[in-house]
Design a binder for these strands. Structure first.
Lengths: 190, 190
DNA sequence: AGTCAGTTGCACACTGGTGTGCAATCTAGG
DNA sequence: CCTAGATTGCACACCAGTGTGCAACTGACT
C-alpha cells in the first residue's frame, strides 16, 4: 500500500495533465489515469472543487517558483522571459491548467489562487516596459497573460508538427511582447 | 406567431453568443436566451450536436465572407489583416465560437466545418510570408490561428478595460504575425 | 369559420456524473 | 504476527441535462 502522501501527490500530478487537457474530465477519468479507484480520490479530495482548487494552488506555487528563479538573474526583461519559456517548455502541458481552469465553472474561486502568478507575470512585463525592452501596446497584466497563452498554443501544435520547437515558442511570445524581430530570434537561439 | 425561419435564425443567433461564452451551456440556456421554450429548440435542432454544427457552419460561412471581402482589395497582406480585424471587431463575440467550440466534445465534427476558414486564414498569412510583410517564425496555418485567437483574447479584456481598443487588438495581432512595430502601429491607426 | 404550421407546457425515460456509506482487503511498520 | 491507516469494491441517493411524446394553444392565411 503506497503511502498516503505519495498517492495524493500522484493524483494531483496526473490531474494536472488530465484536467489540463479537458477541464470537464470526470473524477473517474482522473482516478483511472492515476491508477486508483474513484473512491480513493474522494478520500483525498472531498469534492471535485477541492481537487480543482488544490490543483490551481499547486500549479501556482510551482510557477511562482520558476518565475522567481528566472527573475533572480540580473538581465533585461526580454532575456528573462526567454529563460522562463525555456524552463516551462519541457513540461508545458502541466502548466496548461492555468488557462484551462480559468474558463471552467470554478473560474471565480480560481482567480484568487492564480492572482500571485498573474502579478509576477505582470511585474516582469512591467519591468520590461519600463526599461524599454518590451512594448506598451497593452497593459502589463494583459500582455503577460497573452504571452503566456501564446507559449501554450504553440506548444500544442508542436505535439503534431515537429518543425515547431521551443525556439518558435520563444520567438513568437517575444514578438507578442513587442520585442523586435532580430532581438527575439537572437534570444530564442540561446 | 413568428415565422419559422425567423425563430430558427434567432436561436442560431443567440446560440452564437451563449455558446461562445460557455461552450457547455445547456439547451435550456440557449432557449431562454432566445425567448423560447426548450421544446422549440429541439423542434429546429433534433440534438445538441445538430445545433452546434449548424452554428459552426454559420460562423464559418460568415467569416469566409468577410475574409473574401477584405482579400478582394489589392494591398499588402498586413494591411488586409488590419482590415480584417476592423471588420470582425464590432461583433467579435459572435466569432469567438470558433475558438470555444474546437475545445468542446464535438471537436472532431467541427474541424471539417472550420477547415475552409483555417485555409482562408492560412492563405492570407502565406501570401504575407511570400511578399515578406509577415514573419516565418511559424507555419502559416498555425500563425493564422494564433493571430486570430489573439484578437479575441484582447477583445475580451476590452470589455472591462476601456483603454484597450481595436487599435490594441490590431497592433498586437500584427506583432504576432511578425510585422515590425512601427508598421503595425501605423496600420492600427488607419 | 376552418385549417395548418409553429409553438407551448408538461410528463416521461434515460444517461452520466457527483458524493456517501460501509464492509472487506491489503500492507508497511512496530 | 498484529494492527492501524490506506485502499478497494459495491451499494446507494441525487441531480442536471438530453431527447421524446402528446395534447392544447395561437395566430396567420384562405
Amino acid at each position: 500500500m503506497p503511502s498516503p502522501r505519495t498517492t495524493r501527490t500522484r493524483i494531483l500530478d496526473v490531474a494536472l495533465d488530465v484536467l489540463g487537457q479537458d477541464p470537464d474530465a470526470s473524477m473517474a477519468d482522473v482516478a483511472t489515469a492515476a491508477g486508483v479507484v474513484r473512491r480513493t480520490v474522494y478520500g483525498h479530495f472531498p469534492s471535485r472543487t477541492d481537487l480543482v482548487l488544490a490543483l490551481a494552488e499547486q500549479a501556482a506555487t510551482e510557477l511562482q517558483g520558476i518565475l522567481a528563479e528566472v527573475a533572480a538573474v540580473d538581465r533585461a526583461a526580454d532575456a528573462t522571459w526567454a529563460d522562463f519559456v525555456a524552463h516551462i517548455w519541457p513540461v508545458a502541458r502541466r502548466y496548461r491548467v492555468l488557462l484551462a481552469l480559468r474558463r471552467s465553472e470554478h473560474g471565480a474561486g480560481i482567480h484568487a489562487l492564480l492572482a500571485p502568478v498573474d502579478q509576477a507575470l505582470a511585474d516582469l512585463v512591467r519591468r520590461g516596459q519600463d526599461d524599454g525592452t518590451l512594448g506598451r501596446h497593452l497593459p502589463a497584466l494583459v500582455l503577460g497573460q497573452l504571452a503566456y497563452a501564446t507559449v501554450f498554443t504553440v506548444a500544442e501544435t508542436a505535439l503534431t508538427d515537429d518543425t515547431v520547437t521551443v525556439a518558435s515558442a520563444t520567438t513568437t511570445s517575444l514578438l507578442v511582447l513587442g520585442v523586435p524581430t532580430a532581438r527575439a530570434e537572437e534570444l530564442a537561439r540561446a
